[in-house]
Design a protein around this nucleic acid. Structure first.
Lengths: 134, 134
DNA sequence: CTGAATCCGCAAAGATACTG
DNA sequence: CAGTATCTTTGCGGATTCAG
């Protein structure tokens, strides 16, 4: 396992940590985790790209409070969304995409359109592969 | 035609989007794993989109034989590359992108260009976030 | 309502040794 | 050269409980 600090991989060179720049994998790893795309998609569709915690929780089937919180924290840390806390009773917390977060949507959509077009073929390839190795 | 965003079909339930488990996460999860992007990038740059096992192994820093084999098997299963075995002595195995695999490169490049443009900002956001929570 | 704090199981990933 | 087999370790994600 490669050493990591703050989610960033690095290697030891001459007893000193040397960071290896690997941005694409870092971003894709986040998007590829179990819940991030679902959170981003919900915010993409929401009016003002804004939803409160409970709306996300209820809208994403099967997600636990813990995983939703962790996913939101990571996206907030990356600057893709912002957290708005309203000290009411009961408390209310809203999340909205930042400008950078919203700017990612077209690029992401462009890539996922490839997936949309090729997914049936991928599934067919998997089925054939699994059949050959049965 | 079913409603979709980011390649993910969804249906309206109580005026809210409800996503059905599907393709984009499956593909992004594969691309986002530790080695897949590196393998795809090396093949993208290679003449004829073709490299032998040892070239990939030597070109990808830190990858183990086991993980390279697993990564290649998964990509082969999805139909993104093909394995060519030459029964020589010593044996030689080459991997090359399929037509579908090559067709993914422009879309992927379009998305990763966003990453390149925004990566410095993401890093700055992370640094600020970590500083605030120190 | 929106989290944080623990504990735990399981699958993924690394290390190492062996093989056609 | 290009894998497979086995063992060990790591870390994600789920379940549950507590708190502001």
């Amino acid at each position: 396992m490669q050493k990591q600090i703050h989610g960033r991989p690095y290697e030891e060179r001459n007893n000193k940590p040397h960071f290896t720049p690997c941005a694409p994998n870092a971003v894709l790893a986040r998007l590829g985790d179990k819940w991030t795309i679902l959170v981003m998609s919900h915010l993409a569709l929401a009016p003002g790209h804004r939803l409160r915690f409970s709306e996300l929780k209820n809208g994403i089937d099967g997600i636990t409070q813990r995983m939703l919180t962790l996913t939101l924290r990571n996206l907030e840390r990356d600057g893709l969304l912002e957290r708005d806390y309203f000290p009411e009773v009961p408390p209310r917390v809203e999340y909205h995409l930042t400008e950078m977060g919203a700017s990612m949507l077209p690029a992401l959509e462009g890539f996922t359109s490839w997936i949309r077009n090729n997914w049936p073929n991928i599934e067919a390839c998997r089925a054939r592969y699994d059949q050959r190795n049965a």
